[in-house]
């Protein structure tokens, strides 16, 4: 993850890009724009996650196909009838619309997949921490406590296994009560130690001053340049949407606006993280080869 150039930019740049990409992804139904979105999001997701990305993409494919296939069952409008199912026409146009809605969902999922890798918890709390100090502290504590509790629960389960109270080969009822015992032990431990944490926080001056972040994020010149590039391409894309370049209707007859200059601009907007990622990798290769 440390290799991704876009992740090293200011969190605000990351966040604004993903807001833009997801909003555009939801709004544009034009097949060319859908294809562009799928390719760009897929490319960046592959660069970020590698092998894991292929696995989760393989899980999105059935979802995509199911959504595409069930929609014509409800939506019977359209001119070209493929066949009749349950006495209702199953039309080509409705199937196309189903594919469009399926790809919108897949695009959103892909962008969120990238978002999960780029916008880590600390970036999110650094970005919104000053707006809601108590809430972001709450989030930070929850993020720290979840791994601690998972670890503790494994310890408790392992200890119980040592004394012969493993959860395997039990009836359903026994499994439930065994799990509840672990959960209760976990609750007792975490509540008491939580109060200890709180008292020590108060002793060290919680609430006396503004909370600072562990990581210091500053907007550098490169971040401003990137923001300007994102704003420019996004503004052109919004203009394109306003003049109807991204419009398409699927039922009852398929109509789509002609592909215009706005499509490449939209692609540039979506490809900015990918370009930065590749630039970083190439620069890194060059520097290594010079050594």
């Amino acid at each position: 993850m440390g290799k991704d150039g876009f992740s090293k930019c200011h969190p605000a740049v990351n966040f604004l890009f993903f807001v833009g990409a997801i909003v555009f992804g939801v709004l544009f139904q034009h097949p060319a724009y859908l294809l562009a979105g799928l390719l760009c999001a897929g490319a960046y997701y592959l660069l970020l996650c590698g092998q894991k990305a292929l696995k989760s993409m393989a899980m999105m494919l059935p979802l995509f196909l199911i959504i595409a296939a069930i929609n014509p069952l409800f939506n019977t409008r359209g001119e070209h009838i493929l066949f009749h199912l349950f006495g209702r026409p199953y039309t080509q146009e409705a199937l196309g619309y189903g594919f469009a809605v399926g790809s919108i969902l897949v695009i959103t999922l892909l962008w969120f997949g990238c978002y999960n890798r780029v916008m880590t918890e600390d970036k999110f709390t650094a970005l919104f921490g000053n707006l809601m100090p108590a809430l972001s502290l709450l989030l930070v504590m929850v993020f720290r406590l979840i791994p601690a509790l998972l670890y503790k629960s494994k310890q408790i389960t392992d200890a119980r296994r040592c004394i012969g109270k493993s959860g395997e080969n039990l009836t359903f009822r026994q499994k439930i009560s065994s799990g509840m015992t672990v959960l209760l032990a976990l609750a007792g431990w975490s509540l008491e130690s939580g109060i200890l944490t709180a008292d020590s926080m108060r002793c060290r001056g919680y609430g006396t001053a503004r909370r600072t972040n562990f990581q210091v994020y500053r907007l550098h010149l490169s971040d401003w340049v990137l923001l300007a590039a994102l704003a420019l391409t996004a503004a052109v894309t919004v203009c394109g949407a306003a003049v109807g370049a991204t419009e398409a209707a699927y039922v009852p007859v398929f109509t789509a606006a002609p592909v215009s200059v706005f499509l490449p601009v939209y692609c540039i907007f979506l490809l900015i993280p990918t370009i930065i990622h590749i630039k970083e990798v190439v620069l890194c290769r060059i520097f290594i080869s010079k050594i």
């Binding site: 601690a148 509790l149 389960t157 359903f172 499994k175 709180a198 108060r202």
Partner: peptide
């Protein structure tokens, strides 16, 4: 909110999320 209240809520949230781990067998 006071520190104690904040921590109590944080613990309850984490417990709700991590509670799934207590039921590895189910």
């Amino acid at each position: 909110p006071q520190a104690r209240e904040l921590v109590l809520i944080a613990v309850l949230c984490a417990l709700a999320v991590a509670s799934r781990a207590a039921f590895v067998w189910l």
